[in-house]
Write a protein that binds this DNA or RNA. Structure first.
Lengths: 202, 202
DNA sequence: AAAGCCGTATGACCGCAGTCATACGGCGGG
DNA sequence: CCCGCCGTATGACTGCGGTCATACGGCTTT
């Protein structure tokens, strides 16, 4: 089992924290199943959970991969039953928030409601930016778009949280393609890197 | 100027409707600019609005393309200033909702707050499914994923709202690639179509 | 009525990223 | 301690989708 580090839970609204129950799931284990009565909303402390449905042919249709620091099944708050399956892609540590209590809190705690709305809106914003990024054809364009939108400061600097392979999946590329693209962009003085930091060169 | 048809505004919470002011913008016109004080949240009745930033090199970094029936700048509710530019990609008809009034409504009208949260959560859900779709390599896989996730009923039927070219952009493909893929999938009896309807064959 | 635009549709060619192979270094477990 | 796994890194080849070209029909505009 992984050990959560570097506080990914900073993003969790304060009012929600006392409701959390930590859940550990092994790779391949189910978190919930489609059709099951909604009991919780989740947050990924560490690992990854795959949300999916199964087609008649038996193929798995991926709807989302929730990684570290992300909530998932937020829409379950407005539903009686889960609309998809949640399966751990790796050994994972999650926080489960009872849906009933969260719903109640949304009705009584105006500050929390505002925070929750802001959180959803921010996530939506980022998801849309990622959509535009994935629509770009060239790997180099995606890297630059990523730095332009996610990077901080004047140099659009990004501190890589995970591995380069993780970044490759975020960008919808194979790791080989990303390694090659980064090597070329460095050669051409488009991006620079220092340790785990990646940034645009002027 | 386009004429809104087929009620895309069914998705707008009832409490919000009285606040709407209709705005028409010509292609290329600005809806708001980055840094400007937030005044409104928007909804697209018809047309398309491009949200973007400009890089130092002058290139436009696309963050989102809001189409018919979509809200945009929802995150502006939690901000003092717009974080990006909004420019009409085509002649468009929008609804503008004063941010201050919407914020007030969120505090006073619990039903509306619940609806707004559900609306954001649903949009997030769809955006994530689209992300997984764009990460698929083959055009055929994207078409099938689209039908599996967006299609209704046992056949996973989708009534195409716009043109095939619109669908191509939704799927992150050129229209030529989509025409070819659809032709092949029809030949291979994977998908069928009747008029504007597209569905999976068993 | 003619002209022009747009969506639909298909063919030819090319280039980029995917795939497969290979190598190396660090880290953890047996 | 050594082995194996994983992340990093790069090369060679292939194939899919992008690009460009072309054609046709319906609709609007002049």
């Amino acid at each position: 089992m992984p050990n959560p580090v570097s506080r990914p839970n900073a993003a969790i609204p304060a009012a929600l924290r006392p409701l959390a129950r930590e859940v550990r799931v092994a790779k391949g284990e189910w978190v919930f199943r489609k059709g099951e009565a909604v009991h919780s909303v989740f947050f990924v402390l560490d690992g990854e959970v795959r949300l999916s449905r199964f087609s008649k042919g038996g193929g798995e249709i991926a709807l989302h991969r929730a990684g570290r620091g992300e909530f998932f099944a937020e829409a379950a708050l407005g539903a009686a039953r889960y609309h998809c399956n949640a399966i751990a892609s790796r050994d994972s540590a999650l926080l489960a928030f009872p849906a009933g209590k969260v719903r109640a809190l949304l009705g009584t705690d105006a500050t929390f409601a505002r925070e929750w709305i802001a959180l959803l809106a921010r996530q939506l914003q980022r998801a849309r930016a990622r959509l535009e990024r994935l629509a770009l054809k060239f790997a180099a364009e995606r890297v630059v778009h990523y730095l332009q939108t996610e990077g901080a400061g004047d140099r659009h600097e990004v501190h890589l949280q995970g591995t380069v392979k993780d970044l490759a999946r975020e960008l919808g590329l194979t790791h080989e393609a990303l390694y090659r693209t980064l090597a070329r962009l460095k050669r051409e003085r488009v991006v620079g890197h220092e340790g785990a930091s990646l940034f645009l060169l002027p």
